[in-house]
Design a protein around this nucleic acid. Structure first.
Lengths: 350, 350
DNA sequence: TTGTATGCGTTATCAT
DNA sequence: ATGATAACGCATACAA
């Protein structure tokens, strides 16, 4: 007893196997009740289940979406990123959840170099790729065009870079950071630091850095470069930033810090709490993303919420939509400051 | 200009496409330098990249591993589990990382009912499934046998249930809980509570519950049922347990709690810290798993470490190994208490 | 060392 | 409404 295929169904139902295929794909749209019933019966009886690999091959569609994670700090394996940076975790989960509904597979890879990624994309004949780097989209699209492949490229990042890809799902970075700063300013804080990842290599960080500077300027606040704390975007990076923040609090009267990622805030929490500082009494902290960890922290983190899961879902919708005739469209998702308990009015006691 | 296939390579290199296939798969192991060079050149020139779907079909292997997540509390979508329970997150990431090295794909599904899962497994022609429920393995194996499919079933759970599957990767639950209890007893605690998920439906929870009871007995400690706090294994569940724990501290002199999952400890942290209790001064807490969040918490969590990532990797190794002639073997992984700062000596001041 | 013939399970095209 | 034939891209027995 071998694998059950449509041919087996056909034999059992007494039709050609092509008819079975037609029926399964609801083509022609007309079948005699007679045959329909017999096919159904045969399927039930034999327990037929379509083979996805064969289907992919014949349909010339892979029904799979790829995600190219940014290069991980040390390791090549993207898995380390998934563990170190909860953002990617939640994003991937979001993609997976939506892809589900389309019966579409999800595959991951880390960025190593353009060649590798391209090879990867092509070997899967991906329906679409989700990229965290827009530049790569250029090469991929060109190559896809050259090979006459239908491939959607969706970019997660800064709207400025959108030209390289078919569509992008961005957020309002300026507004996000602006809301955080305004909130703190409204609470009376005047020396506000920034905790960020490297803003020379990361456009997103650069945008948030610029937004921070701009917001300070608009509020007529001091924005010296010494208030900008840069490190790797990870828990460890956040801890190290915490050390430096401690000095800023002491020497520069810093009473608040805006973080470009929740995980940085988490690291800062660790360092400050360890030495007995109180949040938000001694310092106000805001995060960015609103990940799971934001509510895990104590006190819960006031943070700029970008709905990661919905953003991820939208990427999938765009890609799938393209195969149903919709033309891809870029989206800018709103962002909203979620008030929790890591920020408080400025007190002169510092 | 269409897709580049081995036939194109063959034409370019002036050989039969079968020779190209042989070469690509290193079969026969002997090729004239002449043809090898020409094939290589053609591949480079045309930019040939193998089509995975075709390969899967022809090789009768899917090169993909499936993970069946346990049923999620409310939602059907497994994605919610990935967000609510970091354990699965890290496990999946671990599988992904190792599957990587084998150039194997990973697909997920949530448990809905046996039928669905079976259909899912078959439609992918999975090389192997990783299950969190052993009973399901029985049906899947029977069906695979009936259809003459080569399919490895690997179980993550309790060693007691191992008969239903080809292999299992378990941990020493008894030792884990035992170490936690011993540690607390050694610190002088005598009223030790347990925070756990439902132990009627979850064999793992049942095992840890039993281990807890046994450990208390061996230490000649009171182990009344009122010390057992049950709720959903999630942050929210942990918070609710925290409320009840507060009462136990007040009325029953409870000074320590053993949690069967880090996420439960995290929830307890939240509740206790919110009302001003100090950890570990007012109560000692131990976790189980040693996930990322264990070090994110402040104070860092003393917890029973099971190396989730390695456990996940081992599952993949087992499945892949089976296709290289190795017979599957079950493993019991060691478990180790990691001392951090959520536990302290008992003080009478309670 | 290389090639011929056949098969993997499904879908697409074009008849009937 | 149903079916014959070819195609999808690759791999394997077997032959030469």
């Amino acid at each position: 007893m071998k694998r059950v295929t449509i041919k087996d169904i056909a034999r059992e139902a007494g039709t050609s196997y092509v008819t079975v295929s037609h029926y399964l794909n609801k083509r022609g749209e007309k079948f005699s009740l007679e045959t329909a019933a017999r096919i159904e019966a045969a399927i039930k009886k034999l327990g037929y289940i379509p083979n996805r690999a064969a289907r992919k091959l014949a349909r010339r569609r892979s029904y799979t979406i790829g995600i190219v994670l940014p290069p991980a700090p040390e390791d090549i394996l993207p898995a380390s990123l998934l563990r170190d940076n909860p953002f990617y975790n939640e994003f991937v989960a979001g993609v997976q959840a939506r892809a589900w509904e389309y019966d579409t597979d999800v595959v991951l890879t880390g960025y190593e170099n353009d060649e590798k990624v391209l090879e990867w994309v092509l070997s899967y004949q991906l329906d679409g790729v989700i990229l965290f780097s827009a530049e790569m989209g250029k090469k991929i699209r060109e190559e896809a065009k050259r090979k006459r492949l239908e491939l959607q490229t969706v970019f997660i990042g800064l709207d400025v870079l959108t030209d390289f890809v078919d569509a992008s799902v961005t957020i309002d970075e300026v507004s996000g950071i602006g809301q955080a700063v305004s909130h703190l300013v409204g609470l009376g804080h005047r020396r506000i630091a920034l905790a960020t990842g490297d803003y020379h290599t990361s456009p997103v960080n650069a945008a948030r850095y610029a937004a921070y500077k701009q917001a300070l300027t608009e509020a007529n606040l001091f924005g010296g470069e010494e208030l900008v704390l840069v490190d790797e975007v990870s828990l460890e990076g956040g801890k190290r930033i915490g050390e430096r923040l401690l000095r800023l609090m002491k020497n520069h009267g810093v009473s608040a810090v805006v973080c470009v990622a929740d995980i940085l805030a988490a690291g800062i929490y660790k360092t400050l709490l360890r030495v007995g500082k109180r949040i938000p009494e001694d310092i106000s902290i805001t995060g960015f993303d609103d990940l799971f960890i934001a509510t895990l922290l104590e006190p819960e983190l006031t943070t700029v919420k970008q709905d990661v899961v919905r953003r991820a879902a939208l990427c999938v919708d765009l890609i799938e939509g393209a195969y149903q005739g919709k033309t891809l469209q870029s989206f800018q998702m709103p962002v909203e400051l979620v008030l929790r308990h890591s920020t408080a009015p400025y007190k002169h006691s510092h």
